[in-house]
Amino acid sequence: MQPIRPFSSRLVALPIENIDTDQIIPARFLKTTSAEGLGAALFYDWRYDAQGAPRPDFILNQPQAQGAHILLAGHNFGAGSSREHAVWALQGFGFRAVISTYFADIFRNNALKNGLLPIQVDAETHRQLFSLVQEAPETEVQINLEAQQVVLPDGRAVSFPIDPFARRCLLDGVDQLGYLLNMADRIAAYEAAHPQRVNTLLNLA
C-alpha cells in the first residue's frame, strides 16, 4: 500500500441520506472473484438507465466528477451489506475519500483497510461543504490525514476523527495484517490457554 499524503480535489456532491452498499454496488456485480474493475459498477442503478445508457442528470456522469477524488455524501453513509466491493468500486472510480456525518461500522472498517478515507464531519460543516459545491463547483479542498484535517479554500481547517491505529498504518503504507501476523506467539499462547472449541472438521456422515 502507498502511504497516504495530503491531496486536493473537487468535491462530488451526492446529497442523499443513508446510502447503502446495495446502491454503491448492486449485488449482481458481486459474482466476481477479483477486486478489480468494479469502478464501472459504482452506483450502477443510479448511473445508468434500463438500457444501460448513462443518465446525464446523475452526478457521476457529469464533468464535475471526472478526475475527482472526494465524494461528499448525505448523512449516514455505507449501511447494509458488509460487501467490501463497495469500497473497491469507489476506489475503482477514483475516490480516495468520502465525507459524511457518519459511517456504518463495517463500511468504515472496510474503507480504512483499503486506504479510502471515511471523513466524518459535524452537521454544520457538512452543510457548508454542500453549499460550497453549489456556489463554486470547481473549488478544491485539501485532505491531510497526518493533521486529520480537511482544509477549505479560505484556509479554515476542520478536524476529523480517525482510528489512531488505522491512521498510523495508512501514513506508513503498511497493512493491518502484518501487525496481526507479528502477534503469532501471543495468539498461540491464547490458544494453549483456551483449548476448548468446536471442530468443524468433524465428519457428520
Binding site: 467490501e84 469500497v87 472498517n109 472496510n110 497493512d175 495484517l177 496481526l180 495468539i187
Partner: peptide, 13 residues
C-alpha cells in the same frame, strides 16, 4: 459481520 480484508485476517491469524 466483517469485510473481505478482515476475512483474510481471520483466515490467516
Amino acid at each position: 459481520g466483517i469485510g473481505t480484508s478482515e476475512v483474510g485476517h481471520v483466515l490467516a491469524t
